[in-house]
Design a binder for these strands. Sequence first.
RNA 1: GCUCGAAUGGUGGAAUCGGUAGACACGAGGGACUUAAAAUCCCUUGGCUUCACGGCCGUGCGGGUUCAAGUCCCGCUUCGAGUACCA
Length: 941
Amino acid sequence: MEYNFKELEAKWKKYWADNNVYKVNVDQSKPKYYVLDMFPYPSGAGLHVGHPLGYIASDIFARYKRLNGFNVLHPMGYDAYGLPAEQYAIQTGQHPAITTDQNINRYHEQLDKIGFCFDWSREVRTCDPIYYKWTQWAFTMMFNSFYCNSCQKAQPIEKLIKHFETEGTQNLDIAQSEELTFTAAEWNAKSEKEKQETLMNYRLAYLGETMVNWCPKLGTVLANDEVVDGVSVRGGYPVVQKKMRQWCLRVNAYAQRLLDGLQTIDWSESIKETQKNWIGRSEGTEVQFSVKDSDVKFTIFTTRADTMFGVTFMVLAPESDYVAQVTTADQKAAVDEYITYVKKRTERDRISDRKVTGVFTGSYAINPFTGEAIPIWVSEYVLSGYGTGAIMAVPAHDSRDYAFAKHFNLPIIPLIEGADVSEQSYDAKEGIVSNSPRAGVKPYIDFTLNGLTIKEAIAATKKYVKEHNLGRVKVNYRLRDAIFSRQRYWGEPFPVYYKNEMPYMVPADKLPLELPEISEYKPTEDGQPPLGRAQMWAWDEKNGKIVDKALVDNKTIFPLELNTMPGFAGSSAYYLRYMDNKNEEALVSKEANGYWKNVDLYVGGSEHATGHLIYSRFWNKFLFDMGVSSTEEPFQKLVNQGMIQGRSNFVYRIKDTNTFVSLNLKDQYDVTPIHVDVNIVSNDVLDLEAFKKWRPEFETAEFILEDGKYVCGWAVEKMSKSMYNVVNPDMIVEKYGADTLRMYEMFLGPVELSKPWDTNGIDGVHKFLKKLWRVFDGGLVEAKADAKELKSLHKAIKKITSDIENFSFNTCISQFMILLNELGDLKCNKKEIFEPVVVLLTPFAPHIAEELWHQMGHDTTVLDAAWPVFDEKNLVESSFNYPISFNGKTRFMLELPLDMDKAAVEKTVLENEQTQKYIDGKTIAKVIVVPGKIVNIALKG
RNA sequence: GCUCGAAUGGUGGAAUCGGUAGACACGAGGGACUUAAAAUCCCUUGGCUUCACGGCCGUGCGGGUUCAAGUCCCGCUUCGAGUACCA
């Protein structure tokens, strides 16, 4: 009988569903293992062959773990909020929930065809109120928390209020937007509104006036990772900087823990490196400078405290509050003009032309180390968002300061012995300090750095600065707080209402606050977000419910927040929800979380390195502080699957004709390459009839063939509809079956590697499955396996087991092919051998494995079988092939027992007949024997 | 610019600790079966050289360490990824 994959796959799909084979429950008697995929955003285009790559890899691992006796949690769900559904809704007026639902159904159908072992009863959808209730809940928890630096933990805001009431800001070391100082008396004298405003400075979820990436075309704010090269990632629209009042998450407070945690998790070095850079820890010194003839003082941040004696000017960021304070009357016009110019420049302009610009403020600062008066400038190369928004410029040892100094003709003082700064600055942190202070200049303070290394000089300066109250040692992080407001409809509504213009949280027991219906999905005419159109969108504080916004009286009924949450809100804690997705009392029960803990293996794309993978780590650390999550890190091991690119095919039309010429003859003509649908091309050979039917203009096409075939050209491009290179997994499943698709996707190469999809090789794995099928079709026999057969089998068990552990699935499949070839050569059809083979195959080709398992007389699922145990004894590795070399050149191989000692090997080799031939009367100068490796004989003469 | 990673046949890719480079597969060539096709099976397939046995050269380039280097070290080249005025 033929290998009828269609029938067989349908049969087992039904069996698995009917018997709830993939349903898992907490089971204390078994060890747990949690395998998670990054859940997809269900787009309208459906899945292409690139999407399942990671899912197949994780599915293999999940099945492997299950066969090894683990209780495996392997869920799937949908990241259902997103821009495409909303934009479609704006165009068509259809509710985004409808489109989203349709897309989810299509995804589900496609996923099911591939035979994944997902426990669908645990599915989550981020747009489902019973799910986003907990997203909202976590947000209110963050609102009601602050971060304590000394105990490195989030704490309830009540604790902070108590502290303010008794001590004011004394003895506080906490994360904050700006440094505030007030006494207990001052705090107690504040009005309720003032108190609320003050608390905003500390809350982990806070309303902040921030510079945001505003995308006018999309009408919304974007996170830093949603903007690339000054345009939006989705849509590619220009993005400008704009100051807005937005919800923010104080991610920066967790910077150190996010950095430290990287050492405890098993992620690729490159992703860890990316996150390290993104967090951007830098240790430095804050130094205070006073302004000449003024009481104004300002603070700068530097990592090069050793260069205090080489400061020749100061620079403020254009947005800095100090600018207005230090600008003199006669420079005001020039400064104002400059600031106007900077405001007009977009992020994009700054990236494209990096020209030196700036303006003098008219004021001078006093260098606390030299007493010199140095000019204060304003320039866009200093950023307001980092450090203090002000720098001391040391042109001799900083290339940006150098460029500025050269452009505006400011002095440059070298501070390192032998540093030549005539052409460029000397940025390296190596060398001996000089000119600090300069020879012949009367010292302003009793302090010198001359003769020290840079490292020593930095330490000495830090010490001096601290002792003399000139500043302090400071660690800065580049990681910015996450902007959490989006001016969109299709997202989680904030559980926030405004009383006296200050935000208040909807009580936790009233959640979820459901997304209201609106008539149109675009922003309102007066520029409010879409939720401004919702009629039923006001909060009745007394009765705890949503009411008509016409009733707002600002006494008991208040307006609700009009923004919604960003895409990363729903995806930040979803892994916890899978553990207990129906719980209405908690995000996850203690029992479920106590058992499943965190994700053991997380598979997904590396493009989330600075987005989702930072936010969810932050979110989880917060929940850990709250005692909700039992583990500090959410994802223990991370594997990044590569992208599958498209492999486009071309036909070559002779200009101004309807004649197409085959690839290798095209140079004889003047041709235009035309993309052709890869689905009517097989092994780069065009199906002529299908081509004629493909599009009406090709109906009359004529062909110039080579060897009776039309050969197409090809190129690697992004997989997209317009290149006609999208390969749909359904079509592969239809033609070859799900098992072939699964094996082939793995066979393409290492999971981590990006590679073009190339259907050409798929016959290879399909042939393997057909061959395997034929062995069973011929019938198995009950007979004792011999040593050779056992050796083949155990070699495979060893290799496949270790390769799965190492996530090297392509070599597993090679090993299967080798195994089948070897067993074929041995004419082996013994059940004793093939039974473990079927179990080994289960993770890769579950349908055929299940069928063969049952054909062998088992009546439970193959997933209940046990992974074959590797037995060293069966690998008759009792001997080793020694390469025998003369004068370093390998001449022949000699098989010797492994357990022979060095002396015995040497003796045997020297007495060997072939060795004698090579020695042939010559003197042996040296014999090198490395047991189990090599014998090298050096000859003299 | 900085950080990280990669480079192996016509193609995708193997090679655990430095130990027979090119496993496995695709493609290509030849053959068997067949009226024919499909399917299946067998042989060849890194380059050069030799009637043949064999020999020589070969893992981006140039050096080095070693009995032995795709693998380790130094210096380049090219490509990819991340990041970008972060003081």
